[in-house]
C-alpha cells in the first residue's frame, strides 16, 4: 500500500542545548500523540527523524506512526545542514518507492527542517542532489534570529517559518503546525488534492510569523 513519508530534520547542535532541545523532544511527542488519533495518518503516514550536529544521523528510519517511538535527543557540536540534506536524499532514495510502469509508488515525501544557527558545512554542495529529488512539501523553520534564513530559502523556497526565539512556546507551536500539516496532507492525499506549496498547508499558528523576503 502507498505510504506518505515524512522526514523531520532536526538541528541538535550545541546551541540547541537546554530549553530548545527539550522543547523539540516534547514537540515530537505531542506530534506523535496527535497523529495517532488521525485515521488517515495512522493508515499511511511514516515518520523519520534525521538529526544533525557535527555529525548527521538518521536516528529513526521511516516508521509507521503506530510503531514510532519519540527519540531521546542530546545537543552538542556544529550544524551540518548540508550533510543533513545529503543524508535525507540518501534515505529517501532508499526508503521511498517511486512509481514504475507496473507498480504504484509512494506519495512524495514531506520534509520539515528545524535549525537555530548558521550551517557549519557546505550547504550549496548538497543542494543540487536535494533539488533533483521530487519532494512534496518542504518547510524550513528558523528557530531564533541566529538561523540563516537565506540558506533555508534556498532549500524550502517561500516555505520558511520564523520563530522569534527558540523557546518552548514557539517550538511547540511549530510542532503543532507540523502535526496539522501532516494530518491535512494525509487527508488531502486521501482527498486527491495536489501536494505542493504553502497554500496547501494550514495557516501557521499565531506564535509564528511567515517570513517575508
Amino acid at each position: 500500500m502507498r505510504k506518505l513519508p515524512v522526514y523531520l530534520l532536526i538541528d541538535v547542535s550545541g546551541s540547541m542545548y537546554g530549553e530548545p532541545i527539550e522543547s523539540v523532544k516534547n514537540g515530537i511527542k505531542t506530534l506523535h500523540t496527535a497523529l495517532r488519533k488521525e485515521p488517515q495518518a495512522m493508515e499511511m503516514a511514516f515518520l523519520s527523524v534525521i538529526t544533525f550536529e557535527s555529525n548527521v544521523r538518521q536516528l529513526i528510519p521511516l516508521t509507521e506512526i503506530s510503531k514510532f517511538r519519540p527519540p531521546d535527543l542530546e545537543a552538542s557540536g556544529g550544524t551540518s545542514l548540508g550533510g543533513a540534506l545529503t543524508e535525507l536524499v540518501r534515505c529517501a532514495k532508499n526508503e521511498v518507492a517511486t512509481s514504475t510502469p507496473d507498480r504504484k509508488g509512494d506519495y512524495k515525501p514531506m520534509v520539515f527542517i528545524m535549525t537555530d544557527g548558521e550551517p557549519t558545512d557546505d550547504v550549496d554542495a548538497a543542494l543540487p542532489a536535494f533539488q533533483a529529488y521530487k519532494w512534496g512539501i518542504v518547510v524550513a523553520c528558523a528557530a531564533g534570529h541566529d538561523a540563516n534564513v537565506g540558506v533555508l530559502q534556498k532549500i524550502a523556497g517561500p516555505n520558511v517559518l520564523m520563530l522569534d526565539v527558540a523557546d518552548s512556546n514557539s517550538i511547540s507551536a511549530f510542532f503543532k503546525f507540523v502535526t496539522t500539516s501532516i494530518a491535512t496532507t494525509s487527508k488531502k492525499v486521501d482527498a486527491g488534492g495536489q501536494e505542493g506549496g504553502m497554500n496547501d498547508l494550514p495557516p501557521p499558528p499565531p506564535e509564528i510569523s511567515l517570513f517575508k523576503s
Binding site: T100, P101, R103, K104, G105, G192
Partner: peptide, 17 residues
C-alpha cells in the same frame, strides 16, 4: 487496484478515481 495509469502519484490518483 494495481493498475498504473501514470508514474506521477497525483495524476495517477486523478485517473484511477
Amino acid at each position: 487496484g494495481d493498475k498504473v495509469h501514470d508514474q506521477d502519484p497525483e495524476i495517477q490518483l486523478l485517473l484511477e478515481m
